[in-house]
Design a protein around this nucleic acid. Structure first.
Lengths: 358, 358
DNA sequence: CCCCACACCGTAAACGTTTACAGGCAACCT
DNA sequence: AGGTTGCCTGTAAACGTTTACGGTGTGGGG
């Protein structure tokens, strides 16, 4: 296999200096004859520029890292799917870090920025610890955080608004005439759990509905736990007419239990999920779900980072992506898929993906 | 922000040569006193090794690329989820290429191997063209292909076996007493479409069932097209008692239509999907599906590549990952989720993922 | 005819590491 | 005491680029 040709090999073969070769390859002004000779030599040798050497000299790797907890999580996946093309079209490669929700791994990623193998980083941390903040402050490359970050942290930041999301859903249910709206939440010591629980309470208040502890059931963010929680809830409050679920998996569990209990969805009980994953469109009945704009957040984050990489300075920017409601059969009757908000309504397109397996 | 400390900065501060610094940092035998001084200096300066310079000298980047058509496709996603941890624990970073099913992009990726920004590549191409083969033969780094490749191609190769997969499903349906088993396929000019169609015909033959053109319906690999195809099929052959669908999306479309037609699943019509995506476990009734072992293929591919990176030579290896059947409610009655093949039975665990949206 | 301007090119340094080689020094043996 | 051994360390080259700088040759103007 030998050792690939370098700029030196070309120089020899073309009878010019390596400086000329470099100039030609970079399109700097050069005599026509020289260009011809160099190009010919490069073609014959099948030369490809060594990216590592180039990076060393130019201090640019044209790589960007994206770090999140788990590729399998549809929220992160949606981000990834938007980030990738944005970076690609700007000439950057994407280095993927899956941190398995381990804080130490996230710290590692931040620390490894110092190795300078990427020009920038997009990170969506689970929680932001002191260690995160310290490393962020000292980061040797631009960083964009997807998720919430303490006020005053000097870092570009793109966040969701699950509080408003919950409110959208509750308003929707209220508009449909539902008055006994229950909340099936995940653990309250998680950031999303706490935020969604608080928003539920507030939204009820604003609508003049009483807050009733009996209507709140805590489980976990999984399907089986969601089912269990809803079963308990139904036993306690048989007359409930709507379920606000803290994510889509819980909502799927709710559908299971309601079906088993002989309740019709949405006629007897309306169900709303959250995150608007592709499971929502695939389930039966299809699930109305609050989209927190993961895709949009990914895209914005990538664009913020590219701005920094282009050298734009200035104060850290903060963008909040508004949630929206993807209305489907589980609240609005038997019609199949309706998305009243065409501005973001690519929701259902997502099931249109090929599942071949070559 | 200044310019980060280098090995030179440390050498100065510790009063030793850069060679000694390098030795200490790499754990080569060194006097205790020197180690102490160097470590102290490095700590105080917050030194982090420059990965680019290191790669240039050592000709190792500790990066591996994975190229596939689309991260959103659950089959590729499953691969990615297995590849990532295997590479990570071996100390490699993952560079992700999404080629959007554009052949030119795949060629680009292969070509860019010459830039030496990665030590190896795992690629799952849609089709393998002449250009692919040429570049593979000349590749300057080890490559593992996930998918089929012409016999005699000198490249490590991991493939699925969708033919056997179809047969598993047909046998299963036959064992349940079904005799009018229809096939709902995607276009026959695609690789998976052709293979699955042929396998269907063969499997019927082996079971002594007649092949009947009326029982075959061609659509496309999407939910809506699947629904349309099944509607036609039902109109033509009302007595069909089982549907073999060429992927999960088609099967979801089938469920929609059967429900609308008042047919019970599985009592009246049993339904089998293919690819065993997480949609299969989420749907109602949950969907029996043929897993083509995407996750397993990803894992095996990563391991083959690591072997090469460790310097193992030898003939190109070919591994075929056996398919298996994830049996669920859409064929085996009302009981919820049963996977009779515990050897691969992590199927349902996949829905147990958190869908938070910080 | 001389000089200057200009276009082009080559030499060499630099980016931040790793590593072959050789020098220095202490300890040990004879 | 002199020689040998072995450990530790420093010098310098190398990895493959980019680029500042100065040199050469040509053409044109005075």
């Amino acid at each position: 296999m030998a050792d690939g040709p370098t700029i030196n090999t070309i120089a020899e073969r073309a009878g010019v200096s390596i400086a000329s070769v470099s100039r030609v390859l970079n399109g700097l002004p050069t005599r026509q004859e020289t260009v011809r000779k160099v190009m010919a030599a490069a073609d014959e040798l099948g030369y490809v520029r060594n990216a590592v050497a180039r990076s060393l000299k130019s201090r640019r790797t044209h790589q960007v890292a994206f770090a999140m907890a788990d590729v399998g999580n549809p929220a992160y996946l949606a981000m990834l799917r938007e980030i990738q093309p944005v970076l690609k079209s700007a000439g950057y490669r994407l280095v993927l870090h899956s941190t398995d929700a381990v804080v130490a791994d996230e710290i590692d990623v931040l620390h490894s920025l110092g190795e300078r193998y990427v020009d920038g980083l997009i990170m969506s941390p689970l929680r932001v610890t002191e260690a995160h903040l310290e490393l962020l402050a000292a980061a040797r490359a631009p960083v964009v955080i997807i998720g919430s970050v303490p006020d005053g942290t000097r870092v570009d930041n793109v966040r969701a608004d699950s509080g408003t999301g919950v409110r959208l859903a509750i308003d929707h249910l209220y508009a449909l005439g539902r008055r006994r709206i229950a909340m099936v939440n995940g653990p309250l010591d998680t950031v999303p759990g706490a935020a969604r629980g608080a928003a539920y309470r507030e939204a009820l208040g604003d609508l003049g509905l009483p807050y009733d502890d009996d209507l709140v059931q805590i489980g976990d963010f999984y399907r089986a736990e969601g089912a269990r929680a809803v079963a308990e809830l139904l036993a306690r409050v048989p007359g409930v007419d709507a379920l606000m679920c803290a994510n889509d998996l819980i909502a799927l569990g709710a559908l299971d239990v309601l079906r088993a209990a002989g309740k019709r969805v949405p006629e007897d009980v309306a169900v709303v999920g959250m995150d608007d994953t592709d499971l929502a469109a695939a389930s039966w009945p299809s699930l109305t779900s609050v989209s927190l704009g993961s895709a949009e957040r990914g895209k914005v984050a990538a664009e913020l980072l590219l701005d920094r990489l282009r050298g734009e300075g200035g104060e850290p920017r903060r963008v909040t992506v508004p949630p929206h409601l993807a209305v489907r059969a589980s609240t609005s009757g038997p019609a199949h898929d309706r998305t009243p908000d065409p501005g973001h309504g690519d929701t259902d397109g997502r099931t249109d993906r090929k599942g071949s397996g070559a």
